[in-house]
Simulated assay, not measured.
Amino acid sequence: MISVLLPVRNAASTLPFALDSLLRQSFTDLELIAVDDGSDDHPHDGRPYDGRGGSDRTTSTGSSGISATRAVLQEYARTDHRVRALEMRHGGIVQALNFGLTAARGEYIARMDADDVSHPERLQKQIDFLRQNPEVGLVACRAAFGGSAERAGGYKRHLDWTNTLLDHDQICLGRFRESPLVHPTVVFRKELVCRFGAYRDGPFPEDYELWLRWLSLSVRMAKLPETLYVWNDPPFRLSRTHSRYGVQEFYAVKAEYLAKWLTKHNPHHPRVMVMGAGRITRRRAEMLLGHGVEITAWLDIDPRKINRRVGGRPVIHRDEVPPPGRAFLVSYVAGHGGAEDIERFLGGRGYLPGRDYLLAA
């Protein structure tokens, strides 16, 4: 019933933890599609893989010529028929994900990463939810942070924030601030791929683009309140090392879908006012201009900017914000606590998120 899609490259040291957590799920009607994206890590020397829960699988591949990651997958596939170990030449995460999707036989697709761990009840709870809520196309779950909060405070804050977005409306409103879902926590109906397309390859985060595209096509999403996943944060995680996950790439793909949303929902389209007048804020907001949005003014609190024109537009003190219904605002105020400050300020002026303003940072 479920095809668990697990792309992997050079992850022999963490892969047994992930595989064991999936093969010990209480929901057993699954296939585990592990796509080896051209791993070339050094063959294992024969020591046992210390999987989570005491895995005693061993391998000796010093003379076989295959990678350590491939050796792990072959060993698991030999001992559990649910493991389908696929291999491809190194092509990247999007190619690996879509290769796995074409091989998937399940009614549902679950995601998993090779350095994380799933709770034993994860898949059962997510499948139960989708069965009981046929109008929902995708369900995620809350995740625990498995890295160092001191060394990776930004990742930890992002995860804490995503864990607050549980229902469809919260996910919809949150999508333009940041990616509202942790990719490997999701389970979705395979029919969505047939109807709305699979992962796209380009200069953007492939998971964020997928959520934005599916939400723009009215796919309903939800998140379980239970914490059923451990999201680890190794230093080699793709989101740390690949250019497609850069800040500017996030804002560029966000601008495309935010502009589409504004076309449908902004009663003053194409005009918006932007909260924030700093250089970085302006650069990110002005990405909307290429999609037909017109920025009429900046709203700020910096006295050095007030009553000046920046980029040909006036800078107005935010206390002079028009009454609700007179303008639509998009906030690009970033920084820790910035969005919360904007929410408090606009809420005190009678503005409602989604009706009068959106947070985009």
Score class of each variant (00 low, 15 high):
Glu31Ala: 14
Tyr199His: 01
Glu209Leu: 02
Arg244Lys: 13
Ala327Arg: 02
Ala140Asp: 03
Phe17Pro: 07
Arg313Lys: 12
His183Ala: 07
Leu165Arg: 12
Arg220Gln: 06
Asp167Lys: 08
Arg89Pro: 00
Ile127Glu: 15
Arg47Ala: 06
Arg244Ala: 13
Phe196Lys: 05
Asn98Val: 02
Arg313Gly: 10
Pro48Gln: 09
Gly38Cys: 02
Leu101Tyr: 13
Ile171Glu: 06
Ala361Gly: 07
Ala71Thr: 11
Arg344Thr: 01
Arg70Tyr: 14
Leu22Met: 15
Gly46Lys: 05
Arg283Pro: 13
Arg122Glu: 09
Asp300Phe: 02
Val72Phe: 15
Tyr251Leu: 00
Phe204Asn: 00
Met112Arg: 00
Leu288Phe: 09
Thr69Leu: 02
Gly53Cys: 15
Asp169Met: 12
Leu346Lys: 02
Asp20Gly: 10
Val315Tyr: 00
Glu150Asn: 05
Ala360Ser: 00
Phe345Leu: 10
Val321Pro: 13
Gly54Val: 05
Asp115Asn: 14
Ala110Cys: 09
Ala96Met: 10
Met287Glu: 12
Cys194Arg: 07
Arg318Ser: 14
His183Ile: 08
Phe204Glu: 00
His158Ser: 13
Tyr76Met: 01
His291Tyr: 07
Gly325Tyr: 11
Asp319Arg: 02
Asp116Val: 01
Asp341Ile: 14
Arg195Thr: 06
Arg213Ser: 14
Gly51Cys: 08
Leu224Arg: 03
Val293Ile: 12
Phe196Val: 07
Gly53Glu: 14
Val193Pro: 11
Arg175Met: 01
Glu226Lys: 08
Arg47Leu: 03
Ser26Arg: 14
Asp160Met: 01
Ile109Lys: 03
Ser21Thr: 11
Glu107Ile: 07
Arg131Phe: 12
His183Thr: 06
Phe27His: 07
